[in-house]
Design a protein around this nucleic acid. Structure first.
Lengths: 334, 334
DNA sequence: CTGAAAGCGCTTACAG
DNA sequence: CTGAAAGCGCTTACAG
């Protein structure tokens, strides 16, 4: 492996001239620059990142804790990671993956990675209600940005990027309304979920705006499974009232709705319009395809990296992005 | 941030005694060690990893290229990443994520990361037929290990860990046989897929061993979707012959089989036993639950890290692991 | 515009 | 068992 010194010797300049050629090329005379660049090329020189990091005390690495998977089926995590990686690379950075216990118990791991200078900062996700990580990191002065707000907190400890779940639900409602649906139900989660309350709120507001009924049209599922989605749908239909639209809080619940409708001889998309959330790989692969709200992953990732690596001059940055409605057969005009 | 020097001053020893306390504690007298450790604790000292890496030229970081997701729905990637991370951490290492173009076009990216000393080596996955990456990395002398063999190659360029797909299919066949099934079909992929041929081979061999028929019982699906799985199942059933068991090459195809069976008024598990592959989150979440072959992720990750970081003394290491049959309702005794 | 010097925070022989 | 010295490969002021 060639070093700066060897390149310098080959180009007959000093080491810092080579360093400047790399980091501040405008400081060199054109002919010197070209000569140095030729030597770099010829010797196939690549700067040693560890030496650089030691000197500058910046590693250009961003820590991300891989969620432990038994917790929750995170069907879009690979999309998120890919987008995050790509966004980081556009700024010359990379993602360092690590595992840590949940909640505040994981904080020593974060602290350690930062103290050893293995990462410059962190991207958080899987934010929970009253998530303690944000406050802790802020207190330690460790740079971070969160994908997801800290729910049920009036002031957010740090910068975040999130997707507007309420706006998403409202988009789904309006879409179903436009295809003629007038009794649109909501399949949700327990009230303890901040994300769940955000999404159900959007559904309720949109229905009221459009003069649609909401009473008796919400079912809260205990867990995020196809089975629960089907059961909830059955409960709705058994209540005797007509339902011609279902906005589900997740693709998984929506899949349950599709199954129950089919089982009863109803045609999803024709008799009842159904929408899901997150546009997971499943949405495309079922039949009829599931209309779903796509999280703008590339934009999310871009914003996260920009905020984390940008000059944090002043107050925390907060970015609420709109999801995109991807229309498929499950909500075809009735 | 405290440095070695400060700890040394505090403990009234030299810096290399502190270094030894950390890296070769047996060299210190017990009382010196304790004194040094107290200072380390007190000053909350954490060694700077970049300084260490510069000196030892080992970064304790393993590169993994995040697959670009439109390619293939990789439903168990988060499980894999979590297991890989955990295994790496058990040896004091971490995973560095990056993106790269597919095939040989991505090789400069690998080379660059290694040349800049940002990673010590790579874990590869998503191996393809005649995958050029293995040969390239080996030629450059860049350490790597592959999750997945290079298909249709007589000699493997480097070390690998893989799951025995043939054995998996055979396990599924025998399981269905034991619950009374006698006409067991296989839903597969095109012949161009090495992984597909591995799995269909295991099905064929097991059927022959058990004296079961195989002719007319294989359907090759063009893509890995629920729709294709359902269509293939329809073709099988329309052929007029009885089918009482279906071994599907993937969970997605198996889901298609379940749907088509249900559509025809057949009860999966009761009338026809169905199995999938990979035990993705879906398997647990559908109803009836899908019997599937779980890849032993923790063991896979452990072996990958051991091979990559171990002394590669001599010939490439090859490890073929058995999947585990997770039995659920879709294959309940008929 | 270019170069001699110092130093980032460690570890590795080696001498005592 | 402990310490003085050298050096890993860069970058950062600073002088010329």
């Amino acid at each position: 492996m060639a070093t700066l010194k060897q390149v310098a010797a080959h180009a007959e300049v000093s080491v810092q001239t080579v360093s400047n050629a790399l980091n501040a090329p405008h400081r060199l005379r054109a002919d010197t620059l070209e000569r140095v660049n030729r030597s770099i090329e010829l010797l196939n020189y690549r700067p040693n990142r560890n030496a650089r990091s030691l000197r500058t005390s910046a590693v250009e690495l961003i820590g991300y804790c891989v969620p432990s998977w038994p917790n929750q089926t995170h069907l879009v995590m690979d999309q998120f990671l890919h987008a995050l990686c790509a966004a980081a690379e556009r700024t010359g950075r990379h993602i360092l993956l690590f595992t840590a216990p949940g909640g505040v118990d994981g904080m020593p791991t974060y602290d350690d990675l930062h103290a050893r200078r293995m990462v410059d900062g962190f991207v958080l996700s899987q934010t929970e209600t009253h998530d303690p990580r944000h406050g802790w990191l802020k207190e330690q002065g460790i740079p971070f940005v969160s994908f997801g707000r800290v729910w049920k907190e009036t002031t957010q400890p740090g910068p975040w990027v999130d997707v507007d779940g309420a706006a998403g639900s409202a988009m789904a409602v309006r879409h179903l309304y436009e295809s003629g649906r007038r009794r649109i139900a909501f399949l949700g989660w327990p009230k303890s979920s901040g994300l769940g309350e955000d999404r159900v709120g959007g559904w309720r507001d949109a229905c009221k705006d459009l003069g649609l009924p909401t009473t008796g049209l919400t079912v809260r599922c205990r867990e995020d499974s196809i089975e629960e989605g089907a059961r909830a749908t059955a409960r709705l239909l058994d209540a005797g009232r007509t339902v011609d639209g279902i906005v589900a809080l997740s693709d998984i619940l929506a899949l349950g709705a599709l199954r129950e409708l089919t089982r009863r001889g109803l045609t999803p998309g024709h008799d009842v319009g159904v929408t899901g959330f997150d546009d997971s790989p499943l949405a495309e692969v079922v039949s009829p395809g599931l209309t779903s709200l796509r999280q703008p992953m590339d934009q999310i990732a871009e914003e996260l990296i920009t905020i984390l690596t940008g000059s944090s001059n002043g107050s925390p940055v907060e970015r609420l992005l709109r999801p995109e409605l991807v229309i498929r057969g499950s909500s075809a005009p009735g």
